[in-house]
Write a protein that binds this DNA or RNA. Structure first.
Lengths: 165, 165
DNA sequence: ACGCAGACTTTCTATTTGCAAGCCAGTGGA
DNA sequence: TCCACTGGCTTGCAAATAGAAAGTCTGCGT
């Protein structure tokens, strides 16, 4: 598959380098789904309505860029692969949160819905990706966070943990 | 020019809608340059090394999406146009800041440089896009901020103000 | 042995992107 | 007056990418 690096992989500006990896329609959407726990090829395909070949190349690219890892696992006795976030992929949370806030404010959905919010599970209130809950002030780490997407479900979904390696 | 909306202009997820506008290699780079004061077609062209036609369509798209406005102005007697940030464009600062932080941490430049930092001009220290300076605690608004990009210049560049309208 | 499901891979076509070159309007100089 | 120049597009054409559909491969379960 040998994902070729674009010409921007090592420009001096960190924004440019980030865009080298993330600057296409699919990358951030795949990673968004991965951060709410999506792991398998056909789940991504179905949810994103992306063509097989495009999904396949995107996943390889994200694996090459070390935002995802391809992990074998057993599902009722047979070996399968799933795509799990690395620490680098999980740390895109602030980027996605900022994008979500901007999109909420400056773009409009076809049918209005309650905003997407990041929830501190211990206190149940909205917070942001920082270390302390903006509502209760306690220290928050990743497994205390959940993302609420009201147009999908009334229940917030816990964030996926990155693979530890 | 009549920039056609992609199929995602009104999906329920605000991240998806944001990506509809920002999810390509050039949009955020153009906006980054605009936030450090770049305004004119040929400055963008030279700095980004982007082809004329691509720049032209991207600028139109960003104008259609209301992140930029095309403003006539006079330059030594003749009428020219410049592209200035709107409030929506200026409010991408948190997104760019998050991307810069991520890129700084997880990607590597060809030749290492000091990190890009956002500076509170009154106290001279690093801060982030919030309302209060993380160093001195005072209230910060946009004209108190500057972006330091050490590989370009030792002086921080003040952020461009959005057009008021 | 057969069939099936998941995860690709291939093929083919339509669309988009990018480079190079050309165009056009305003201005200032010869 | 005519020419060159500069900024900002537009056009033509080649290359890359996206997408739909069909094919492949692997490991089961029956």
């Amino acid at each position: 598959m040998s994902t070729k690096r674009t010409a921007w992989a090592d420009v001096p500006c960190p924004i440019g380098r980030a865009i080298d990896v993330l600057g296409d329609k699919w990358a951030l959407l795949i990673l968004r789904n991965a951060t709410v726990g999506m792991k398998r090829f056909d789940q991504f395909r179905e949810d994103l309505a992306i063509a097989d070949n495009v999904l396949s190349t995107r996943l390889s690219r994200l694996v090459d860029a070390r935002l995802l890892v391809r992990v074998p696992y057993r599902d009722d006795g047979r070996t399968r692969h799933e795509y799990r976030l690395t620490a680098a992929g999980a740390d895109l949370l602030p980027v996605m949160h900022a994008l979500a806030a901007w999109g909420q404010r400056y773009t409009e959905a076809a049918e209005p819905a309650e905003p997407m919010t990041l929830i501190h599970r211990e206190c149940g209130h909205e917070t942001n990706p920082g270390d302390k809950c903006v509502h209760c002030g306690r220290t928050v780490d990743r497994q205390d966070l959940a993302w609420l997407r009201p147009w999908r479900s009334p229940e917030p979904v816990p964030l996926a943990e990155p693979v530890t390696s």
